[in-house]
Design a binder for these strands. Sequence first.
RNA 1: GCUGCAAACUAAGCUAUCGCUUUCCCGCCUCUGGCGGGAGGGAGGAAAGUCCGGACAGCACAGAGCAUUGUACCCCGCGAAUAGCGGGGGUUCCGAUUUAUCGGAAACAGAAAGUGCCACAGAAAAUAACUACCCCGCCUCAGGCGGGGAAAAGAUGAAAACGUAGGGUAAGAGCCUACGGUCUCUGUAAGUAAUUACAUAGAAGGGUAAACCUUACAAGUUGAAAUGCCAUGUAUAGUAUCGUUUGAGGGCUGCUCGUCCGAGCCUGCCUGACGGCAGACAGGAUACAGGGUAGGCAGAUUGAUCCCGAUAGGUAACUAUCGGGGCAGAUAAAUGAUAGCUCCCGACAAAAUCCGGCUUACAGGUUUGCAGCGAUU
RNA 2: GGCCUCGUAGUACAAUGGAUAGUAUAUGAGCCUCCGAAGCUCCAGAUGCAGGUUCGAUUCCCGCCGAGGCUA
Length: 139
Amino acid sequence: MKRQFTLGKNERLKSRKQIELLFSAGKKFVVGPFRIFYLIDSQRSVDNRQNILQFGVGVSNKNFNKAVDRNRIKRLIKEAWRLQKNELKEELKAGNKQLNVFIIYTGKELPAYLLIKDKVAVTLQKLSKMIDENISTNS
RNA sequence: GCUGCAAACUAAGCUAUCGCUUUCCCGCCUCUGGCGGGAGGGAGGAAAGUCCGGACAGCACAGAGCAUUGUACCCCGCGAAUAGCGGGGGUUCCGAUUUAUCGGAAACAGAAAGUGCCACAGAAAAUAACUACCCCGCCUCAGGCGGGGAAAAGAUGAAAACGUAGGGUAAGAGCCUACGGUCUCUGUAAGUAAUUACAUAGAAGGGUAAACCUUACAAGUUGAAAUGCCAUGUAUAGUAUCGUUUGAGGGCUGCUCGUCCGAGCCUGCCUGACGGCAGACAGGAUACAGGGUAGGCAGAUUGAUCCCGAUAGGUAACUAUCGGGGCAGAUAAAUGAUAGCUCCCGACAAAAUCCGGCUUACAGGUUUGCAGCGAUU
RNA sequence: GGCCUCGUAGUACAAUGGAUAGUAUAUGAGCCUCCGAAGCUCCAGAUGCAGGUUCGAUUCCCGCCGAGGCUA
């Protein structure tokens, strides 16, 4: 029986180099309180079957002075991502793509979990659209 | 009993599902790794501020002075500690009352080494003559002008030039005397000392050192993104200038004095280590231009360790011994979400090398102390 | 992680330790104009918070709070 709702080490963005590449070369869009950076790579995905979808979270030090609040927001976003990301993963598998995503929380107030859940769902839909466009333009 | 303040302790719990990190064990696979399963560990009293003191590591170090920064009553103790804490004492100030005791506070060395500053008001704010006072000269005769004496009187101010009495004088003045107060040196006595008391001699002088400063003491500097090892890569590489024992150049904290070093480096072998031997090469400094890495392991989580109990020492801070128990270790960075139950409906707040302290934040609960109010005896 | 600097009206800046904390502009009221703009006059408005030193702190010292920068 295979576990589904995981968020292990190889599903998170770990390398400093990759993150810098994402911020310099990636594209971005805004959903509610999130700012999302993403980078679609269609060539590497063939060899690296584990890292189909990599993910990272960030909260600004300016908007939240206390580490407790920053941790809280990051954990909520991670939780929402963990429970909803699987559809996107299947799409990537089908399209043979590799995707890096980084979400930055730009709001100034502590959010409730339901809000974050909704917004993560919206971003996932948008990302899947982007993948479709990418496939169509490439092919 | 209620309210307020202060201190100490504590810092919601349980169940289910999904998920994260780490250690160990087992199994499988494409085997320096990955996946699955099982068991165990997984933020704080302040983890915070980074305000002090260290440990640890790199670099530097014959030494002296200056500069810079910090600290500042005394004794004893605790402590790894120039941090901090405990006990006792002194001085000054404040409050209370029993008027000689109690309580509290103090960055509490020096203003008599020197320099600066002291608004407004006031004559004057520190070598004090504006009015009034006294003397002399001139003009004029109710007075005015000039020179001098004199800190005794003068509205102010935060602060006014030792206080009172007498002598003295042209008028006055510590100018002199008596009593009293302050300070300094010396001596004696008490005390470990800070300091206190007395005596002799002397001084006159307000404040400010959290103004400069002086005295004494202390401090080398950079921080775990330090540092070491492995892997990858690689270069005793290139160009220009200068120099090569008559000494290029370099080190010694920022500066000065003074002083020291002053020729190598690579590879291999031996040794516990300092080091030694052999071989190849020509080796230095500065500048220019350029190349590579940002992966892993160690550092790094068991230590000046914490808790509980007992015994011993001490007023206490704390210490010693014995017994038992506990102890996150991530590296874009782990503790969360959902559902349910109980209750007071949960404050301040998240490890990032590690300790000791200080400071600041803190809902609710428990205990103790103080103050106020009310009731009863 | 380490280090440094700065907090003054709504805004941008001044102010040897000296008392009505100043200047410009914005806001408000009035004058001017047929109306507006410009101009003129007037008013109101601040030392981040809490202690200490001092006769007296925007200034000096200490503790918090906030903002900005440097380093790798």
